[in-house]
Design a protein around this nucleic acid. Structure first.
Ligand SMILES: [Mn+2]
Ligand SMILES: [Mn+2]
Ligand SMILES: [Mn+2]
Ligand SMILES: [Mn+2]
Lengths: 221, 221
DNA sequence: TAAAAGATTTAAGCATACTTAAATATTAAT
DNA sequence: ATTAATATTTAAGTATGCTTAAATCTTTTA
């Protein structure tokens, strides 16, 4: 299983449930930085290996087998992230970039060693769930993106999803961190801005960032 | 720089000073488990990139540039070994096998993080020196293989070099470990056996193993 | 020193993972 | 319902890293 295949399956899996993201070859190609033609090619090949279903012009769909493989890679990625974050002084972005490489050079045995050493963690430092050895994903808390949160409600930040350095710098500068609590002051819907208060400060967050921040209601806990 | 190229350069470097090992394409091919033709091919390509000198039928020789690259890979390999050995409950063989993969998925930044975290180690758990960031190898102690040690002399074990599971099992069972001291009782030269005493026990070691054990005289310290 | 044995190189070919350009299908707009 | 814009697929081609088989060179041995 090459790194190219692993990244391909992983990308399909993670786009699966995201609105505003489909799993047609073009979208996957864009995410991986390859041409549409290359993605179509890869899709054909993987469908022959029974890792996904490919029908012309349709979104790609992982088979059960393909999903299991994707989850193994995601598991290794998130175990490394968790390990690097706890062990070294590395940022949320750095751990992601290193894990993006390490995930493809990790034996199943190494994954088990990490998993035990970390005491069977359920979530990585971005708040993403860590699949277990059998491919199952732990129950995800009921959550929504900050962009769609209700005015006046209080929420807890449970997840930060991005590969963008500026996003993480913004989070860092404004104490937007997992487990911190916020109150949604106002949604400027037309301009797609969200105003929140966090640790006593008011800040306005544009869509580009508020779409990467997942929150859950505090009283629903 | 692909894993294939990295392994190729690394192998040439480590065969360089070993007697009973030359650096002709055939030897490298055998070590890497590829065909002679593939090794010759690779040699031609790398010589075009100024990483080694290739003249037909002659041993391969790394250029200064090639040597720097090789040392970077060896550095990453040994840093991972040291890290895995200290952090987890892994054997001398396991750490080698994992490092063989991880070395190719390690950024320069990650190597520096490991290096600092480990407090700038000079040797890995097998007793092999760790090149520094500029490609220089720390001074190696005056050593010889146990196979060639003098009868009656006392030595300290400083290095274990092998990829063979049985060798490491043998070492483990007989307390042949870095820093342990031994006395060479007898060299059965014709039969290539070395008898030593270690921690009060006498054992006879055949050439296949005694050639992988490096020792240094205790009083020469 | 000449043949035999052994190693190395050349040649031809294959799988993977990509590219660009052209053809074709889908989707959106008038 | 056409047409235009957009996306996808097909086709042709490239670089990498391998393979086996044949040709050639080097080394050994008699
Ligand atoms: Mn990756
Ligand atoms: Mn993550
Ligand atoms: Mn390797
Ligand atoms: Mn080592």
């Amino acid at each position: 299983m090459s790194a190219s295949i692993e990244n391909f399956l992983k990308t399909i899996y993670s786009f699966r449930n995201l609105e505003a993201r489909d799993t047609k070859p073009g979208s996957i190609a864009k995410a991986l930085g390859i041409s549409n033609a290359a993605a179509t090619d890869m899709a054909r090949k993987l469908s022959e290996k029974d890792l996904l279903e490919y029908r012309k012009y349709q979104p790609l769909q992982l088979t059960p087998k393909g999903e299991r493989f994707a989850l193994q890679v995601i598991r290794k990625h998130r175990l490394w992230e968790t390990f690097l974050y706890r062990t070294f002084d590395m940022s949320l972005l750095e751990i992601h970039n290193e894990a993006e490489l390490l995930e493809h050079a990790t034996s199943d045995r190494m994954a088990e060693i990490l998993w035990n050493y970390l005491e069977k963690p359920s979530f990585d430092p971005h708040g993403d769930p860590i699949p277990n050895g059998y491919g199952f994903v732990d129950f995800e808390k009921d959550s929504k993106v900050l962009f769609k949160a209700e005015e006046g409600q209080e929420y807890r930040i449970i997840r930060l999803v991005s590969n963008d350095e500026e996003f993480y710098n913004f989070c860092c500068d404004n104490k937007i961190e997992i487990d911190n609590e916020i109150k949604v002051a106002k949604q400027y819907s037309k301009n797609q801005l969200t105003e929140i208060s966090i640790l006593g400060r008011q800040i306005v967050i544009p869509k580009e960032f508020s779409n990467n921040i997942y929150v859950t209601k505090v009283n629903e806990q």
